[in-house]
Simulated assay, not measured.
Amino acid sequence: MGNCLSCCEADSHQGSTLTPGTQPLQQVQRSRGLVQYPATEFKELKRPVSTENQNQGRVLAPTTEKKMFPQYTKIPPLKKQGNGETKRLSFVSKDISEAKILQLYEQYKDPVEELILAEGIEHFCQDLEVKPEEFIVLLIAWNFKAETMCKFTKDEFVNGCKNLKVDSIKSIRSKFPELEAEMQNKQSFKHLYKWTYKFCLDNDSGQRTLPVDVAISLWKLVFTGSEPTLLEDWLEFLEKHPTIKGIPKDTWDMFLNFVEQVGDDLSTYDDTEAWPSLLDDFVEHENDKKNQNVKTD
């Protein structure tokens, strides 16, 4: 290693071996003097000193059994975090066949238009063993992100099946309990409720307000299994007032907040809040009914 460390010379120049304890110190020749190392650090050489190195006045450094750096078991390389996820996703993608989804779409597609229309949806519901007016069909349309009632575009149907991870009638039916259970989540139900209004508008005619009869049917449908106490009185109120021609979107949206806040008997209704006028009229109507039923002496 350059001039820093000169080669060692044997003490007797005869290549004799060293044994711990035979002499107190092993002298090593350096270029700038003598550096002494304890002889106990050396053990008996297992092979004689090279003759070639003796001729050059050099002796190989003593071989010791103790190594400066111990050998550790090699640590296996870390697995990439994404490997497991990649395998999982690829496994899922193998479970769902896009070809089967497309085949299913073609089975219900209109023969002329690139859409599944009312007749195809009816056939679709028959295969699912449900009726088109059932709540589960609304849930399927919501999960397909359909924009218009009685119509599925190719993208809506195909992407909807992919999102649900289904590619057959049997697998769609197997999702029914999961779709219905999701409605126990208040936020999910709120999204479904608000989406329903726009979904049922007739976009082709530029419709902006739901006809009362359509809105009544939708309220009955969307509250399947979770009907508010006030719903029956509300629908009766609408049916008894023929002057009410349509339900605006703000009235539809606010009705959900209304039934959550005013209580089952309207006892917590606050007329200072900005409720739609139709809801104010309903409260007044209900109060009049109660007053008429009060017996006086």
Rank of each mutant, 00 (worst) to 15 (best):
C125T: 00
K170M: 06
V92S: 09
P70W: 00
K43L: 15
T224L: 03
K220L: 02
E65G: 03
L89T: 08
E134R: 01
V59H: 05
L179A: 13
V130L: 01
L138H: 02
A39V: 10
Q26T: 06
K194I: 02
K289P: 02
K43Y: 10
K249L: 14
H241G: 09
G206Q: 08
S16Q: 07
E133M: 01
Q29G: 08
K151I: 03
K240R: 11
G263D: 03
E85W: 14
A61E: 11
E52G: 12
S205R: 08
V28M: 08
F176S: 04
E98T: 11
W234R: 07
L218V: 02
Y108P: 10
K220H: 12
W234T: 06
R58T: 06
A274S: 15
K240S: 14
K145V: 03
M149K: 05
F152G: 03
I121P: 00
P62C: 05
E52N: 12
E273T: 08
P248H: 12
L78G: 11
V35K: 05
P177W: 04
W219R: 09
S50M: 13
I116W: 00
A61N: 12
D95V: 12
S31V: 07
V214D: 11
L230N: 06
G263N: 04
Q207S: 11
S171T: 15
S188P: 00
D204H: 10
L230E: 12
P48R: 14
Q14S: 03
A10P: 06
G206I: 12
T73I: 05
D264P: 05
S90T: 13
P48H: 12
C125Y: 00
I116P: 01
N203Q: 14
T148H: 11
V259C: 14
V214E: 04
M149T: 06
K240H: 10
E113G: 00
F255T: 12
A61Y: 06
L25V: 13
E113P: 01
N3F: 00
C150D: 10
S174F: 01
D281M: 15
Q126M: 09
E180V: 15
S50I: 09
D250T: 12
S217R: 04
Q71K: 05
F152H: 03
E85A: 15
F42S: 10
Q29W: 14
Q56P: 03
E85R: 15
L78E: 15
V137D: 00
C200H: 02
N83F: 06
Q14E: 09
G160F: 06
F69Y: 06
T229Y: 07
T272N: 10
A10W: 00
Q71D: 02
S6I: 00
T63P: 03
G206A: 13
K162V: 03
Q36M: 04
G33Y: 14
T40D: 11
K131Y: 03
L45C: 14
G33E: 14
A39E: 15
K220Y: 08
I101K: 09
L115M: 10
G82F: 14
G206E: 12
L218T: 04
F237H: 07
I247M: 05
M254I: 14
K289R: 15
R208F: 08
F255P: 06
C150R: 04
T196P: 00
